[in-house]
Every structure is written in C-alpha cells, then in structure tokens.
Nucleic acid binder design. Structure first.
Length: 574
RNA sequence: GGCUCUGUAGUUCAACGGAUAGAAUAGUGGUUUCCUAAACCAUAGAUAGCAGUUCGAUUCUGCUCGGAGCUACCA
C-alpha cells in the first residue's frame, strides 16, 4: 500500500472516531504536499466540513491531533486553511528507503493473470518508416513494457500490411523503370528502394493515368495467385522486411507475433454470415452487405461489396475474433493514430452487436499526429522525416556533443559508438514519449532535439554522475543504519522514489508513458539539486556517508527502471 | 453540414475539481582551487472569450471564436 492510500485510510478512521461517519477511503483526497509547504502528504479537508460542521482549520486540527496520537509513523502535522499537512517520522523514511533498495522488483507488480495483446507499428510495405511510425512504435513498445510491469502478461503484435494496391504500384514502377535494381546493386536499404519505386509510380501515373489499370490488373493477378506476380511481390516484400528489421533493431523494438495481411485479409467472411443470420446485418438488392449503425448515431457501414469481396473492417472483425479466441486474451490494445477514431468506434460497436462480450475490452490507444512547423507530413511534398535519417542524425549529434566535452578520451572506440547510440536514441525516445500520447505534437527538424533541460540525455547524465560517485566509493559500506537522520531534502527524494510503483500503475491504467517520463525527470532534477548542494563523498560521518550512498544508488536504480519502461538505457559514463 | 479531438509563457511541454498554474527552451544576470557545467542558482513571462455548476474551475456544462481529424463498395 502506498503512503497516500495509507494516510487516507487512517484519516477515514479518524473521521469515524471523531464524527461518527464512515467514509470510503477513496473518497478522501490525499496528495503529496506542495513544495512550498511543510509536510509530506496533505489531506484536503474541505469535503469533510459537511460532516464535521466546523471550520476548515478546526476540522484539520482535530483530525491531525487524532492521527498523531494513534499513528507512530506520523511525526508532526500543520494546518493551512483547509489543508492538513502531515509529516512522517524520520524512521518511516529510513524504512522506506531500505525497502526500496532491497526490493529487486521495485515498481513491478506481481502477475494479475491477465493477458493483453498490444498491436502496434503495423506498417505498409510500400515505403520506409517515418517519424509518425516512430511515435507509434515507441508508444506501443513502451506501453507494452508498462503493462507488463503492472502485472499483465503482454503479447506484442504487429500486422504487416503487405498486400493491396499500394504495393502493386511499387511493383509496377520497379518493373518498368528500375532495370532490375536491387538493394545491393544500389547500396540502399530495401524499404528505401521500394519507397523510391512508389514515388516513381506517382510520377508515372501523373504522366499517364492509364497505368492505374495495369496496377489493378496486377492486383487481380496477385489474388489469383499468378506465379510471376507473386514472385515479384515476394521479392520486394523481402527487401522491405529486411529494411524494417534494421530500423526496428536500431530503435530497440521487437514483437512477439507478426501477422501478415496477405494471410488474414479473408478473415471475417464467416462473421458476415453470422451477422446476417442474427439479423444485425442486412443485404442490399445489389448483394452488398451492411451494418446499420444510424440508431447509434453513426452511419451505415459496408462489410461486403456487391461483388462479394470484403473490405478492411471485415478482416479486422475476423482478426479480433481469432486473436481473442486463440490467445485467450483478456483485452486487446490497438496503437493506431487518432485519424482512425471512427473506424474503431464502428469496429467495437459491430463486435458488440455480434454478441462478443469482449468487445468492450478492446482499447484503441489513439495517439496524435506528429506535425512539422509547416503542418502535416506529406510524402507527396517530400516533407516526411525519415526514421533512419533521424536516428542517424541523433547519433551524430550525440557524438559531436560528447567529443566536444572531451570526457571520454580513454574509452574504447566500440564502447563510445554504443554510447553515442544510447544517447542519441535516448534523446529521441524521451522527446516523443514525454508528450501525452493523445496530443498532437510538433517536431521542428531545423531545431535539432535538445540534450539540455527536460531531455533524455539530462536524465542519462544524472545517472552517469551517480555511477561515477559509486565507483569512487567502491570500498565504502552500503549499510543503512536504522537511526541515521536523513535531511529534509533526502527525505524528499525518498518520498519521490516511493511513489514510483503507484506511478507505474497510473501509467498502465491510462496507457501513458508520459507519466513515467515526467516522473523520471522530476527525480533527476531533485537529485541534481541535491548533488549540487551536498558533497557526498566528503562526508566524514561514516553512517551518514553510507546512508547517502544507499540513497543515491536507490535513485540510480529507480531512474534506470523508469527510463527502462521508455526503452531508454542509462549509461554508467558519459 | 454532421460527428470527434484540441486551444496554457515568444516557443515546446506539465498540472486525480484544491493552496501563489509548474518545467524546459529562447532572453537577462550569476556559480567551476568543490564527487562530471549535458549541471546548479536568480530574474522576467501564460490558462482564447463570455456565462453557469461549486466552499474552490486550466480541469466539469453551455455558447462564441480559432486549429486538427473523420465523414469511400480505399487500406
């Protein structure tokens, strides 16, 4: 139980004893005391005035006195207007710190037995990944890790959009204008080559719109299983997959399951029959099948074209059913941009109409677009920020900054290289994940991502500083004496550390890595102030020195765990 | 037109209905015989507008004005 809940339950006892009213613990508001006031946790007493029938000050005073008398963990309290600020005892914080340092799985909840599938990334195979995909990938990967830390069994899944008219366009252009070019002949990543084909196709269609007919013919041949078309399709997709794999590897992202649309696009047709039998779908005279959602404030949605072929949502319905059944899912999270909000609204509603009780346990993690100063990224206008370029640029930036500082002259080349990658990627990941997922965010390519202030490298640097101290104190003891007196600042840091598990839960409940990012930043900032004001290694009192070493190693541990949930590694030196 | 999301310092981001709306960056002024200055300290600067609910509203409701997305027998 965290301290806020504990205090709320004690306050509830106090209210019962003083005023004879039993209150639900959750109805009492307890929060961390604001910096400018004295105290650790604050009970808001305004909502209790109706029960106490006294002034805010008198109510706070009465509850405070009761709490102090009955709970040895409490050291003191004060009342400011309607706020009861409670200070926990020095011993309480010592115990808190010692439990943090001894718990290897601090912040990780025991298994809750639930299985959640998180689908993310889900790229098209006709062009390389760009900044928008990067946000999707980082969110999906981080949310998966956060859900895991919150006790869930998580399956990371991706659905590769490997068939359809878009890939045929690239295939067509390659046949006509690329003269047998391959990734190795062009010294180019496969996804970039196929992306170039797609761009070339756009030009071809502009010159002669009739080429679209050829492409459609190609798609029909593909569906028929024409060996030549299939072979070309397979070859070019392989190129793309190889390219994607490199990008995923560079980003540190992996999947437990990969689905291919070419294997799932026919799913869902049986569901259409089922829906017709159940009477939730209707067949129009021309043979097309629809679901009427007008009574729910939405439109009519087509599920089967008049020629009997299925549309996108049809396979989504089938895929959802298959996954819930095969993997025994408790819920499924789709990490998909907010432009598809309507699609998911429709999807859930139709599944519900089909009688699937798990339809409510589908969650669309709808995230905002990444915009450039001039607006949305548009591939046609060449304003997309390529993922590989961006990663490389961040690496170079990290390298330049590190070299300018001259702190790493004795480090082996390979080690340096890895470090630059860690820092560059840390900056990029933090930059994206610190923003609330549902908000549109802005990326200005002209201003490179910063390494100062509220950034990934700032937190990495903080960690490296701690590790540096700990290296110098290798021979010192790391015992925490029971009676050691931590300073107010030190207690403050312990308080922050102890709020980490609740923060993980909160982040899992709201699918928001941003909460973890903000937490890590706050912790790093607190530590840096402490570091600046306190000469840790100069301390002559050995008990105090040990306690400080314990404290800073706890900070390093929690920084590393929290940033780990964002997929960011913290170096020991930088 | 309809539906959905969104509007906080010059800029990029915070703030379960709670105390004097926090940071970062850009600006100004400082800190290095001291454990890493990718740091620290000081200073200045914002809730689009109007009502309502509440002891209390950036947060909830309504309207106005901005911005974005969706509204395919595309995926």
């Amino acid at each position: 139980m965290n301290a806020e809940k504990w205090l709320a339950s004690k306050a509830s006892e106090a209210v019962d004893a003083l005023y004879g009213t039993k209150l639900d613990t959750d109805s009492l508001q307890v929060s961390i005391t604001r910096k400018e006031f004295e105290g650790d946790y604050t009970l808001v007493v305004f909502p209790l005035l109706r029960i106490s029938r006294q002034s805010p000050e008198a109510t706070g005073q009465a509850i405070g006195e009761y709490l102090l008398e009955h709970n040895p963990e409490l050291g003191s309290f004060n009342v400011v207007k309607g706020f009861l600020n409670c200070c926990l005892s020095a011993r309480y914080w010592n115990e808190e710190l010692s439990s943090i340092i001894s718990d290897e799985n601090f912040g990780v909840q025991p298994s809750n037995g639930k299985t959640i599938m998180v689908e993310f990334s889900s790229p098209n195979t006709n062009k390389p990944l760009h900044l928008g995909h990067v946000r999707n990938n980082l969110l999906g990967s981080s949310v998966s890790d956060i859900l895991k830390a919150a006790g869930n069994n998580v399956i990371k899944a991706t659905l590769v959009n490997d068939r359809g008219v878009h890939i045929c366009k690239s295939m067509y252009a390659w046949q006509k204008r690329f003269d047998g070019a391959t990734p190795s002949s062009r010294h180019q990543k496969g996804d970039h080559l196929v992306g170039d084909c797609y761009v070339e196709y756009a030009k071809m269609e502009k010159e002669n719109p009739a080429v679209l007919d050829e492409v459609h013919k190609m798609l029909v041949d593909w569906e028929k299983g024409d060996p030549q078309v299939r072979a070309l399709w397979k070859m070019m997709n392989e190129w793309v997959f190889e390219g994607f794999d490199q990008t995923y590897k560079a980003l540190g992202i992996s999947f437990d399951k990969t689905y291919y649309e070419s294997q799932t696009y026919l799913l869902g047709k049986e569901l259409v029959k089922k829906g017709l039998d159940m009477g939730v779908f209707v067949k129009d005279p021309d043979g097309s099948v629809w679901c009427d959602l007008t009574a729910d404030g939405l439109d009519r949605k087509i599920l089967l074209r008049s020629d009997g072929t299925s549309v996108y949502i049809t396979q989504d319905l089938g895929t959802a059913e298959k996954r819930f059944e095969e993997s025994h899912l408790d819920s499924q999270v789709y990490v998909v941009g907010n432009e598809q909000d309507y699609h998911f609204q429709v999807l859930k509603l139709i599944l519900k109409k089909l009688g699937f009780e798990w339809a409510d346990r589908i969650y669309h993690l709808s995230y905002g677009m990444v915009e450039l100063p001039e607006g949305k990224m548009k591939s046609r206008e060449g304003t997309v920020v390529d993922a590989d370029d961006l990663i490389e640029k961040m690496y170079q930036e990290a390298k330049a900054t590190s070299e300018a500082s001259g702190k790493l002259v004795d480090m082996a080349e390979q080690e340096k290289d890895e470090l630059y990658h860690q820092i560059g990627l840390g900056a990029l990941k933090y930059f994206i994940l610190k923003v609330d997922p549902k908000k549109t965010m802005l990326f200005d390519p002209k201003e490179s991502i910063d390494f100062n202030g509220n950034t990934g490298p700032f937190i990495q640097y903080t960690h490296a500083r701690i590790k540096s101290i700990l290296r110098k104190a290798e021979d010192k003891s790391l015992e925490l004496a029971e009676d050691v007196q931590l300073s107010a600042k030190e207690q403050r840091i312990v308080k922050l550390l102890s709020s980490y598990p609740a923060k993980v839960q909160e982040a899992a409940a709201s699918f928001s890595p941003a909460l973890i990012a903000n937490f890590a930043y706050e912790l790093a900032k607190e530590f840096n102030q402490y570091y600046h004001d306190t000469a840790i290694l100069k301390e002559t009192d050995s008990k105090l020195l040990s306690a400080r070493l314990v404290l800073i190693s706890a900070v390093a541990k929690v920084l590393s765990k929290s940033m780990g949930l964002l997929g960011i590694q913290l170096p020991d030196r930088m």
